[in-house]
């Protein structure tokens, strides 16, 4: 596999150091245009004359003409030019993470069919494009960061979320240590971090409306963004995180486990049919709810 995105392009761009707006033009296009900057009569350029001061230049090209190599995404509709000197910074385009980039997937693998993005597994939405931690937190690579949220099963278990307490931006998070606190109609749930890293963003919209987690768990209800600690990205491929078909079979087993836990007075029973009731508080005592939260969401290990 390539270690950098095949759509990442490098080009030499020219711009005027003296002009207040840095308009970049491909260097070869500048030649084609027979630009003033490349001819001896650049001395007639108003900007040169304004900025030259005492500078004496015997050069045949304008001394204010600067050339720099930049990198940009060939397929993304907006061409954001980044100096090639920044290439050594780790970003999805320059690592194997480029395969998760929506722009890459759209062009290189064809459009992602809608059914592949979110499917229903035993009544729960499962987004096929994210990783799942066994504590029902989803993780998605976004611009070199990891976006975290609660999966559909997790939000269903919590029920009506009245408030979510998020960590501070810039705060360090440690795998297995408390990360999030949810105040719900049935009680309070504390969820641990699935990885080590630094919080670089939080979903401010949740301060106003925490029900977004219930309504759109994989979209507007995302929780926070994390810059993972060194080596943490590699952990996504390990057993504790699930993706694709593994995530599907794991979720199926989680629903079965739910039936095991919700024992009736005649022991464990299994039902065939229907969808799970949306409002757990109507069918479950707070003590039973607490047991479910402890079992499925409050995992202490990483």
């Amino acid at each position: 596999m390539e270690t950098r995105c095949p759509f990442l392009k490098e080009e030499r761009m020219a711009f005027c150091k003296a002009f207040p707006i840095k308009k970049m033009l491909p260097l070869d296009r500048l030649y084609l245009k027979d630009s003033l900057c490349l001819r001896g009569d650049y001395t007639q350029c108003p900007t040169y004359r304004e900025k030259k001061g005492d500078m004496v230049s015997g050069k045949r090209v304008c001394p204010f003409l600067e050339v720099e190599s930049v990198i940009y995404c060939e397929v993304y509709p907006i061409k954001k030019m980044i100096p090639a000197s920044c290439y050594k910074l780790e970003c999805p385009c320059t690592t194997e993470a480029y395969i998760d980039c929506p722009a890459y997937q759209k062009i290189a693998q064809g459009d992602i069919p809608p059914a592949a993005e979110a499917v229903r597994v035993r009544g729960f939405l499962l987004d096929d494009t994210v990783y799942y931690h066994k504590g029902h937190i989803w993780l998605q690579r976004v611009d070199g960061k990891l976006r975290l949220g609660l999966d559909d099963f997790g939000q269903w278990l919590l029920g009506e979320i009245k408030e979510v307490v998020l960590p501070n931006r810039g705060g360090k998070i440690i795998s297995g240590r408390p990360l999030l606190k949810f105040r719900c109609a049935q009680g309070t749930a504390e969820i641990s971090s699935p990885l080590n890293g630094i919080v670089v963003g939080i979903n401010e919209g949740l301060r106003e409306d925490s029900s977004l987690i219930n309504i759109d768990p994989y979209g507007q209800g995302w929780l926070l963004e994390v810059r993972p600690a060194k080596g943490e990205l590699a952990r996504l491929n390990q057993e504790e995180f699930l993706y694709g078909s593994n995530a599907r079979s794991w979720l199926e087993k989680e629903v079965d486990r739910l039936h095991y836990i919700l024992q009736t007075e005649i022991g464990v029973t299994m039902g065939d049919g229907g969808n799970l009731s949306r409002n757990l508080q109507e069918v479950m005592a707070p003590r039973q709810w607490g047991l479910l939260i402890k079992t499925f969401l409050e995992r202490k290990e990483g």
Partner: peptide, 26 residues
């Protein structure tokens, strides 16, 4: 038929038990 956490059931049974039931309604 129904069980509290499901909107309806076609049937329900004891896991490894003795009894099960099926509804004709749906």
């Amino acid at each position: 038929l129904f069980i509290p956490i499901l909107t309806f059931v076609f049937g329900e049974a004891q896991l490894g038990g003795k009894v099960g039931i099926v509804s004709l309604a749906r």
